[in-house]
Design a protein around this nucleic acid. Structure first.
Lengths: 121, 121
DNA sequence: CAGCATCCTCTAGGATACTG
DNA sequence: CAGTATCCTAGAGGATGCTG
């Protein structure tokens, strides 16, 4: 067992899951990976089903864990943008692989995501 | 939105997460990746904290999703072994990356997992 | 040994309304 | 626009005991 920051992990995989585990983290991260910089409402609108509570909560945790950074663009009207930090970008191969794997799986099921992407908005 | 098997997915990442999401799946899969073939009790003992209910439930789902296969070795005494299917092995780069990332993160925190692995049993 | 069946807990996550 | 504050619930996950 690995002790770190008052938490216990069973193995390195468990450690990584501590950062990206849960229902939304990987979806948020891979969206930022795909679209570079996004406002709060852009992320929300690109993740159908997420509640505002979950979005702000997960973003806050991702900031705390230094995977995501926030930049305040303007105070009135209040505008921000979120983007992957260096640490967050170090997981880029993961976002890419998980997305590719999904696309490949869909293709095996007869769904051409890349071709029909406009249909899935 | 992508429709597949009566479920709705927001993007390919979401599709992949349908297979490996949750608290235990990736841990089970990466263990089988690391150790090739394992009996039920070996997996259980290598995943501290997992309940038997969770283990058998997750294994069953992984079998259903064709990421894991089970081979019955003997009937009395009943002996089985679990191992990654071809589909399960297609996620190997993921297991490797997630583990490597965790090891690298630990090293940045001053923990040399590979060197001190014997301490974490 | 490999696992169900039960029952239970708890918290991740959701709905809604409100604020700077 | 970008969030917070409350309140609430489903279901993921846990504990225990039993079976072929």
């Amino acid at each position: 067992m690995i002790q770190l920051n008052n938490k216990t992990y069973t193995c390195p995989v468990d450690v990584t899951l501590g950062f990206i585990g849960g229902k939304w983290k990987l979806l948020i991260l891979s969206h930022l990976h795909q679209f570079d910089r996004k406002s709060y409402s852009e992320i929300r609108d690109n993740l159908p089903g997420i509640s505002e509570k979950m979005l702000s909560q997960q973003l806050k945790e991702l900031e705390r864990d230094q995977l995501v950074e926030k930049k305040i663009l303007a105070l009135k009207p209040y505008r921000v943008e979120y983007f992957l930090s260096v640490q967050g970008k170090s997981l880029s191969p993961l976002y890419a692989f998980v997305s590719e794997w999904g696309i490949k799986y869909l293709k095996e099921q007869g769904i051409d995501y890349l071709k029909d992407q406009h249909l899935y908005k």
